[in-house]
C-alpha cells in the first residue's frame, strides 16, 4: 500500500512539474528532490559567501573612491545573496548553522571559481565580467526553478547582479584603453580567469551524475553545456569590442549554428580544484573558519542579552 501511494504521489508531483507549477516547502516532494535542492541551494549560498573573499581582497586597495564604493557595495550584495539562499534552504528544514558547519568541515562544496587568487586590480574587473556574467546566465535560468523559494531568491539576485557585471566590464574597458601597463594587466587577468569561468558551468552533462534528475524535476531548466555555450556566445563579442584576446586558439565562429565553438576544458584541473587542491582552497576555508570562531563570543553575547531581556518582560 505504501509503495503504491508513493508512486501515486510521485506521479502527481511530476504532473505538477510538467504543468509548470511551483513546489512550495510544505508540498509533497520526493526525498531525492528535497536532498538535491538542499545540496544545490546551500552550495550556491556558500559560493556567494566565499566569493566575498577574493574580491574583498581589493577593497582597501581600490584606486579611486568611486571604485572603492562600488566594490564594497558589490561584496555587500554577495553577503546578501548568501543570506537569501540560506533562507531558501532553511525552508526545507535545515538550520543555517548546520550548513555553515558543513562548509567549515570541508564536506560541502562551493563554486570552484573562488579558489583562484585575485592578483591585480584588473582581476576585479574581469571577475565582474566573466564570473558575474556566468552567474547571471545560470541564475536567470534558476529564476524559473520548480522550487518556489529557490526561484524567488534567484529573481531577487538577478535584479541586483546586473550592476555587478556592468561595473566589472566598465573597469575592463577602462583598463583596456588605458596605459600600456593597464592593458597588460587586464590581458593577463583575462588569460588567468577565462578557463576557470567556463568551468563554473560544471562538467559536461553526460559526466554530471545529477543533471538528469535535476532537469526532469525542473530544479534546473537547461543543461550545463547549453548555458556554457550561451555564455561564450555573449562574451566573445564583448572581448572583441575592447580589443582583448581570449586564451583559446580553438575559438571559431560556426555560421550554421551561430555558436562560437571553443576548445576542450582541462577537466583534470577542474576536478583537482573542486577536490580541494586549488590555489586558494585552504586560505578561503581558513578565513571563513576564523571569522566564525572569532565571532562566537559576539553571538553568545547577543543571545545572552536577548534571554535576559526576554525574561524581564
Amino acid at each position: 500500500m505504501k509503495a503504491e501511494s508513493e508512486t501515486a504521489e510521485l506521479e502527481r508531483f511530476e504532473a505538477r512539474i510538467d504543468r509548470g507549477e511551483r513546489i512550495e516547502p510544505k508540498d509533497w516532494m520526493p526525498d531525492r528532490y528535497r536532498r538535491q535542492l538542499v545540496r544545490m541551494m546551500s552550495q550556491h549560498a556558500h559560493s556567494e559567501i566565499v566569493g566575498m573573499l577574493p574580491e574583498g581582497n581589493w577593497i582597501t586597495r581600490a584606486p579611486n573612491l568611486r571604485r572603492k564604493m562600488a566594490l564594497l557595495a558589490k561584496v555587500q550584495d554577495e553577503a546578501g545573496h548568501g543570506l537569501y539562499l540560506y533562507s531558501a534552504t532553511e525552508t526545507l528544514g535545515v538550520a543555517r548553522e548546520e550548513l555553515v558547519d558543513q562548509l567549515h568541515a570541508g564536506t560541502a562544496k562551493y563554486s570552484s571559481i573562488f579558489n583562484y587568487p585575485t592578483l591585480t586590480w584588473a582581476d576585479i574587473g574581469v571577475i565582474g565580467w566573466f564570473v558575474d556574467g556566468a552567474a547571471i546566465v545560470n541564475q536567470t535560468m534558476l529564476a524559473k526553478s520548480s522550487f518556489g523559494p529557490y526561484a524567488r531568491a534567484n529573481v531577487r539576485i538577478c535584479k541586483e547582479e546586473n550592476f555587478h557585471k556592468k561595473q566589472g566590464f566598465e573597469i575592463v574597458a577602462t583598463l583596456a584603453s588605458g596605459t600600456d601597463a593597464q592593458r597588460a594587466m587586464v590581458q593577463d587577468a583575462v588569460d588567468r580567469w577565462w578557463w576557470p569561468s567556463l568551468m563554473m558551468f560544471g562538467p559536461h552533462d553526460d559526466d554530471s551524475p545529477n543533471s538528469q534528475v535535476l532537469l526532469r524535476w525542473g530544479v534546473k531548466r537547461k543543461s550545463n553545456d547549453t548555458l556554457r555555450q550561451h555564455f561564450v556566445n555573449i562574451t566573445v563579442p564583448q572581448a572583441r569590442a575592447v580589443d582583448l584576446e581570449l586564451p583559446d586558439p580553438d575559438l571559431e565562429y560556426d555560421e550554421e549554428s551561430g555558436d562560437w565553438t571553443f576548445g576542450e576544458i582541462d577537466w583534470d584541473e577542474f576536478y583537482r580544484v573542486i577536490g580541494g587542491d586549488g590555489p586558494c582552497n585552504r586560505e578561503r576555508l581558513n578565513a571563513r573558519r576564523e571569522a566564525h570562531a572569532e565571532g562566537q563570543w559576539v553571538r553568545d553575547a547577543a543571545t545572552a542579552y536577548a534571554k535576559k531581556h526576554a525574561s524581564r518582560q
Binding site: M52, G56, I59, T60, A79
Partner: peptide, 17 residues
Amino acid sequence: SEWCGHGPLLEEDIALA
C-alpha cells in the same frame, strides 16, 4: 570596510559595510 567577509555574523558584514 576591512571587516567585509570577516564579520561575526553575515548580517553584521552587511550592516558594517
